[in-house]
């Protein structure tokens, strides 16, 4: 397990490094002068020159990359253009709101997906199985921003059951939770489908296993066999999938934050693009990417811990 963990950790560090290199290359390759873009058309040449030196753009490429690389690993992502605050700090301030949204999405997807998958596996081939099957495919297919807008239209504008904008009163947990319902539904509903399908498939496999047959042969009640012995094993692949899922929910969260006017990293990046706040955009992209890699690392370690067979596959 230690060997596996170290190897997996090494891989994660390598991926983060390559991702940084890619991001730097993208920034470097763009036509035009980042300082000019950041300052807008009305800036004087002297102002641009000053910003260029401040951003280190007057130095050779490899030194620029080295500085970017070393600083980024130390958590220094440079300063944003508008208020000159450290990018890392600005992004970290917005991160909890986004994480809350993703957590909400996970609650939706797990709370609906696992029972649906389990239920359809037990009732395989029946009408309910078919309906849930089509439903799963449908919610996976439809983009989350369309779900977000339609949910806003139906539940907030037309029916007025739930609030349309904002994250709720600070300090009022109940209000914040109510404001979380619709956006997290938009973020999580696609994953209800994924999880239901995955749990169904792996349940079907597990239900055939010999230890389940043995349990049945011993006369244990059906309910106990299904939920206690089969489901605990069938749920394993979901853990890996959730790792990937959180990354995709990060993407959906961008839209949900904009549609429901919530604070968060997605809204931050979007506003930063509109104000040409370059370093903030790349910084936030890097933070979310590292977060995603980290989550996958944790998911893989958990699965490696639970299922020793995985360890030899790396």
């Amino acid at each position: 397990m230690l060997y596996y963990s170290l190897k997996r950790l090494g891989l994660a560090v390598a991926i983060v490094s390559v991702a940084m290199l890619l991001l730097f290359t993208m920034i470097y390759l763009i036509p035009g002068d980042p300082a000019a873009v950041a300052l807008g058309p009305r800036a004087t040449e002297a102002m641009r020159e000053a910003l260029r030196i401040k951003m280190g753009l007057d130095q050779p490429v490899w030194i620029q990359f080295w500085n970017f690389f070393v600083n980024a690993w130390q958590g220094d992502l440079g300063n944003e253009v508008l208020s000159d605050r450290p990018v890392a700090k600005v992004v970290m301030e917005q991160l909890p709101a986004t994480l809350a949204l993703i957590a909400g999405g996970m609650v939706w997807s797990v709370a609906l997906g696992i029972p649906l998958g389990c239920w359809t596996a037990v009732k395989r081939g029946g009408m309910a199985d078919r309906i849930v099957g089509v439903f799963s495919v449908a919610v996976i297919a439809v983009p989350s921003f369309v779900v977000a807008i339609y949910a806003l239209l139906i539940f907030a504008v037309t029916l007025r059951w739930l609030p349309a904008i904002g994250a709720g009163e600070p300090g009022d947990l109940g209000d914040q939770l109510v404001h979380l319902i619709l956006p997290s539904l938009a973020v999580g509903i696609g994953w209800v489908g994924y999880i239901a399908r995955l749990v169904r498939a792996s349940m079907l496999e597990v239900l055939e296993a010999s230890h389940i047959r043995t349990a049945r042969a011993f006369g244990l009640p059906d309910r106990q066999v299904t939920y206690r012995y089969a489901l605990t094993i069938a749920i394993l692949p979901t853990v890996t999938l959730l790792g990937v899922g959180i990354g995709q929910m990060l993407s959906s969260a961008v839209f949900a934050e904009i549609v429901f006017a919530r604070p968060g990293v997605g809204k931050l990046v979007y506003d930063a693009i509109l104000t040409r706040n370059y370093p903030l955009v790349t910084g936030a992209v890097l933070v979310t990417t590292v977060l995603f890699i980290l989550i996958n690392l944790i998911a893989d370690l958990v699965v490696g811990y639970l299922d020793p067979r995985v360890r030899s596959r790396l």
Binding site: V254, V269, I273, F292
Partner: peptide, 23 residues
């Protein structure tokens, strides 16, 4: 494989936003 994994590790929309800002 390392390159593929690195590209895949960017959340799609974040990567899209970054590229659109640049291009």
């Amino acid at each position: 494989i390392l390159l593929f994994d690195a590209i895949k590790s960017f959340p799609t929309v974040m990567l899209a936003l970054a590229l659109v800002t640049l291009f």
